[in-house]
Structure formats: structure tokens, C-alpha cells
């Protein structure tokens, strides 16, 4: 099976998830072993995945620059929830 760079890029997620026949996976790995460009692509993707993982860090998630500070209506809505909770009139959770 001849693997082109296009095939490699298209099937990288299969390789990652361990899908496909042993022969197919071996062909993809062989292509990687002889193709420096595809190896660089894999390195790029690894770095991309690392950055995406960082976005999810729970304590301080990275959010878009466009994310605004809480607008006043949103704060007001949360505060009315707070007041209902404070006086014990909190509506039960809607689930």
C-alpha cells in the first residue's frame, strides 16, 4: 500500500485511535519513518494538542480575548438568584 503525504495527514486520527488493519497502520508508520515533512506535521499537531489541553485547565481556563467581563445584566441576574437563595425562596434546580 503506497501512502502519500495527503493519506498520512488524512489518516493520522485513525493511527492515533488504533483503528485500521495492522498492515495499514504499518504503512502509515513506514511513511512517517521516511518523510521528514510529515514528521514535522505530526510535531506541529502534537504541539497544537498540547496547547488545546492547556485551554481546558480548570482553575484558570484560557478564554477568547473577545470574552467580556461580566456585563451588568448578567451580574444582576446572578444577584437576584443570590437574593432568592438568601431568603430561602430559591427555586429548586431545574434538573
Amino acid at each position: 500500500m503506497i501512502v502519500t503525504c495527503r493519506d498520512l495527514a488524512a489518516r493520522l486520527t485513525e493511527l492515533e485511535e488504533g483503528v485500521g488493519s495492522a498492515v495499514e497502520r504499518a504503512s502509515l508508520r513506514f511513511h512517517l519513518s521516511i518523510c521528514a515533512r510529515c514528521r514535522r506535521y505530526v510535531a506541529e499537531l502534537d504541539r497544537l494538542k498540547g496547547l488545546l489541553t492547556d485551554l481546558g485547565r480548570e482553575q484558570d481556563p484560557v478564554v477568547p480575548m473577545s470574552a467580556e467581563a461580566a456585563p451588568d445584566p448578567a451580574v444582576a441576574r446572578a444577584l437576584s438568584t443570590f437574593r432568592a437563595w438568601k431568603t430561602g425562596e430559591s427555586s429548586p434546580d431545574d434538573d
Binding site: 481556563p61 470574552a67 467580556e68 467581563a69 461580566a70 451580574v75 446572578a78 444577584l79
Partner: peptide, 17 residues
């Protein structure tokens, strides 16, 4: 309430995002 409001101002935008 002031404690709650400060928390909302700090985190609400992140929760939405």
C-alpha cells in the same frame, strides 16, 4: 452579597466562554 458579587464578576465571563 458583596462576596458573591465579587465572585461573579471574577468568573462569570470565563463560565460563559
Amino acid at each position: 452579597e458583596a462576596v458573591f458579587e465579587a465572585l461573579v464578576r471574577q468568573l462569570h465571563g470565563k463560565l460563559v466562554a
